[in-house]
Amino acid sequence: MTDIAIEIQGLRKTYGELVALAGLSLAVARGEVFALLGPDGAGKTTTMRLLAGILAPSGGSARVLGLDVFRQAEGLKRRIGYMPQRFALYGDLTVAENLRFFASIYGVPRAERLAREAELLEFSRLGPFRDRLAMYLSGGMKQKLALACTLMHSPEVLFLDEPTAGVDPVSRREFWRILYRLAGQGVTLFLSTPYMDEAERCARVAMLDRGGLALCGTPGELKAGLRGAILEVIAEPPREAKARLAALPGVRDVHIFGERLHVWLETPDAEATVAAALDGLTLIALRRIAPGLEDVFNALAAGEGEA
């Protein structure tokens, strides 16, 4: 039992007629980096908020660190951290004051607070800005400060709801560097993300769909579970190519990634048909590729995810 950090069983949340979460069951091991994926409205934020103890469930149970989230919330609050989608800092307080405030609310003793503050400022590289008002920080720095605020009390489990949404790629990379370091320290990370490349970095991934669990496993397992094959096609003009390919028998779905097309084939041996269909267009590249999580996600969205 002790190696399980989060255990959810049949968790439900409804708002009148609207079902936000329709019986979700999951288990996350201690020290695991676990990501929730899914389209908007799939129930990711609802799950996060339920686990953080902000929402009351309509049914089901959830245990974090062996404690009942809904009945033993008070004991749990000190041991978990939650960073909502839009983490709000006090813009009119400085970086150091924000850290100090959250530390004091959690009752972190002074000596420990100072050490923690120095450590977090150092590894978030916010040190030079410690006396700057939070409202004057850049988006990426704000996000790092938000993370630092939720880490002041050294939580054992950290819930992060789309922590890098709207953050530039460089800051995202740095943010992940911090997350890995936390994971290395044994902190369980439970996060949701709209970015597939981030999901690939996680130990395990759960894909939500319409309030329920559609898929769960390591990124490798999920990708291996995808039926059929993925062809990468680069052709000019891409829109015309997409239209032609989508109409082909044996093609289940076509998605555009920048200038490339990902063609999801029912059977791997349809490559010739694809090349023929593009006759008359400028074909720059056509090759079989290993499916990415993005492809699994798209397949799921197309209603064919169950492998």
Binding site: G53, I80, P84, Y90, Y106, G107
Partner: peptide, 12 residues
């Protein structure tokens, strides 16, 4: 600004 939700998560 959303800080109230932040405070709800704390032991406050």
């Amino acid at each position: 600004i959303g800080t109230l939700e932040q405070l709800v998560v704390t032991p406050l």
